[in-house]
């Protein structure tokens, strides 16, 4: 076996006392690219945040396991240490902390004390990844995400993904707000990571990202559950026919999690 396995079993999640996820089951293995699609308000981003441990989300039932280890028992930083990475839809802005210092701290957090990445090696790796993502080098000296455009923030998330090389990457609407050129660059970055040791969960409600990053498995979420799974052919059908046929098939009237 290569890579890691992330298992999500009967996951129920609440925010402010309201249940958003109502029993999600999903398994992602190293080498696999999964896409989760679905209209807005069906719980896709909640799944991503709950896996990473966002403070506002409360898991009320179910399990998340990383190679058999209980992720829900881990602090957020321990989840990252275990190999999870979430490219966030709304990354925080942190004033006074340069992007470069943050990246170096992040890389060193994954290394032993006393074995910090040498500065020159870090700069070389960072510059290489920034070139690959066609980013302005000055960005590394700007404060983290402060004053970044939507597209710059997304590229910065993929930059971190490339530098940290996690076992499982979760991309939460990494395509929202990107023009077609930026979308291509971001896709190029994701595809570069594709290998048998890297598993990826791509959350999107547009099909267009999946034209550039082909998933092996596609899941549709509605009402806080995975309601349909299939292969890449599912993307094409959703692109041409939308979501209505799934709702008809399953007898769903309102696909959102509901009030």
């Amino acid at each position: 076996m290569s890579g890691s396995t992330l298992e999500i079993k009967d996951l129920h999640v609440e925010i402010d006392g309201k249940e958003i996820l109502k029993g999600v089951n999903l398994t992602i293995k190293g080498g696999e690219f999964h896409a989760i699609m679905g209209p807005n308000g069906t719980g896709k981003s909640t799944l991503a945040s709950a896996i990473m441990g966002h403070p506002k989300y409360e898991v009320t039932k179910g399990q998340i396991l990383m190679d058999g280890e209980d992720v829900l028992e881990m602090e957020v930083d321990e989840r990252a240490q275990a190999g999870l990475f979430l490219a966030m839809q709304y990354p925080s802005e942190i004033s006074g902390v340069t992007t470069s210092d943050f990246l170096r701290s992040s890389i060193n957090a994954h290394r032993e004390e006393g074995d910090e990445i040498p500065l020159m090696k870090f700069i070389k790796e960072m510059d290489g990844a920034m070139d690959y993502l066609e980013m302005d080098k000055n960005m590394s000296q700007r404060y983290l995400n402060e004053g970044f455009s939507g597209g710059e923030k997304k590229r910065n998330e993929i930059l971190q993904l490339m530098l940290l090389k996690p076992a499982i990457g979760i991309l939460d609407e990494i395509d929202s707000g990107l023009d077609i050129d930026a979308l291509k660059v971001v896709s190029k970055g994701i595809n570069k990571l594709r290998n048998e040791n890297f598993g990826c969960l791509i959350i999107t409600h547009y099909q267009r990202l999946l034209n550039y990053v082909t998933p092996d498995y596609v899941h549709v979420m509605m009402q806080g559950r995975v309601v349909k799974s299939g292969g890449p052919e599912l993307v094409e059908r959703l692109e041409s026919e939308g979501y209505e046929w799934i709702k008809d098939e399953l007898g769903i009237e309102d696909e959102t999690v509901g009030e």
Partner: peptide
């Protein structure tokens, strides 16, 4: 801000370092 802490910690940075 707990959300800022979450963001930094999600990259593996310890709470104290964040």
């Amino acid at each position: 801000d707990p959300v800022q802490l979450y963001y930094l910690m999600s990259r593996g940075i310890s709470k104290q370092e964040a």
